[in-house]
Design a protein around this nucleic acid. Sequence first.
DNA 1: GCCGTTTTCGGCCCGACTGTTTTCAGTCG
Length: 574
Amino acid sequence: MPVHNQDIAAIFDEIADLLELQQANPFRIRAYRRAAQTVRSQPRELAERVASGRALQDLPGIGDDLAAKIVEILGTGRCAALDKLKRGVPEGLEDLLHLPGLGPARVRLLRRELGITSLARLRAAIEKGRLTEVRGFGPKLQARLAEAIANPVTGKRALRATAARYAASLVAQLQRVEGVETVTVAGSFRRGSDTVGDLDLVVSSRRPAAVMKAFTGYDEVRAVLAAGDTRASVRLASGLQVDLRIVPRASYGAALHYFTGSKAHNIHVRRMGQRRKLKINEYGVFRGREQIAGETEESVFASVGLPFIPPELREDNGEIEAAAGGRLPALVERADLRGDLHVHTSATDGTATLTEMARAARAAGLQYIACTDHSRYLGAYRGLDAGRLAAQLDEIDRLNAAGGRLTILKGIEVDILEDGSLALPDDVLGRLDLVIGAVHGHFGLGRRRQADRLLRALDHPHFSILAHPAARLIGEREPIDVDLERVVRHCAQRGCFLELNAQPQRLDLDDAGCRLAAEHGVLVSIASDAHRPEDFACLEWGVTQARRGWLGAANVLNTLPLARAKELLYRTMS
DNA sequence: GCCGTTTTCGGCCCGACTGTTTTCAGTCG
């Protein structure tokens, strides 16, 4: 039974929860939380790292003890320390920790005073009105807990692209408030996470009261969760939570840095400050009582000897060490993209003709696109058979001959069948400039068979690009279980490429996959998978994801000039 | 439990808001 990084991280988080309930040393608890975060964000499976003999202790926050626990978990799927902790805590007590307003101290209090050890018992106690007997539990907290138990938060996170729409109108509203200098959406949104749990707005203004009034009075606000002089939280009608922080201009950079996070990144930077006898908080960088930096983010980084670190990298995944060593990558930008190698038309499941898509691509500043409609597969998608494909190729020839500023490459998105073969015959595929292969079914094959399937597809003589490699749909379908490193290595050997599908619900490769591809020298195709003319705007989401994956322009296939891209793509030989 | 341009021991990020309290603990980000 393979143990994944996620499994290890979940065990460390659970240990941290249980230690909290036992009032363990808070720094020990933090060490487990930090380790969980480190493990979760590793681009490679730790199992493979251990197998190859590389030390786990090189990872940030992993020392001898946690390294040994990781090895134990990898070998047995269990952790004796966790099992032991569990024996000391009633089952169900942990669930209480995840209710809003309940932390370890109150959970301990509930258990001691009322014997409450589970959600069910808590519900019963609330119904009998017994909670107010406990010191510190007033009517408001009781009502809040009753509400949370009745309507459990699904924990559903919004797609970043969805949150962006809500953010845009709110930001516009705040920018109109008199005295407002700057409004920025910080938090995981600014770091470019594929999903966000809430929005964090940072506003610089000389008149915080006016901003606060406009914010809590915004017409999409359904509930004001908290509101002070400089900070507030609301829930919008859409369910999205938005936190606001208002600071003076002199603190803007410090606040932006602080509220952009990530938390692990911030802690790392603050510790660097400490070593320099500096105090770094959301108001600035201070030596004693004197503020020495903080109006800009650059000044905050400079105070600890670092250059500006792009928000997408701020996960404490080595970006601080890279910055300190002058090794920060120059990240890819939208303007670097010259082409888009995955575009659909109304010949299959797109909404616009090839001419219309070509016009939209030009408007988006592209020099070339690949027309890659679906192959025929079990009758789905109105997919192209050899005959309809031939007609489309003639049309592409006509459009290219008409000599526009945009070149259209001939391609196909062909299904990778269960056994790894492709859904169109070789002689048809051989007529194309590129062949994109994609998994659209048989998602649950199992780790080994799934990799074998993809490797066989990559072995096909005409195979160019593996589309949306994990086949995930964020919030709807989990990624397929596959040894991505095996796939990446095979791409490197075969001269194939990986796609970063830029549709907001896909964003697949993920950031860790991008780093893996770059490590093995496999170029990534940032592709819109456009089905409508306006979908070329999705490239922006893809670029953001690529930046999170540390990719520079040189790591991205479609930053290349057309001639060079074509050379790399066209594969007639085995 | 981790970690070192103060340290192999003794630190470990920091402040706002809430609900409850009569001065603050707990939670949250």
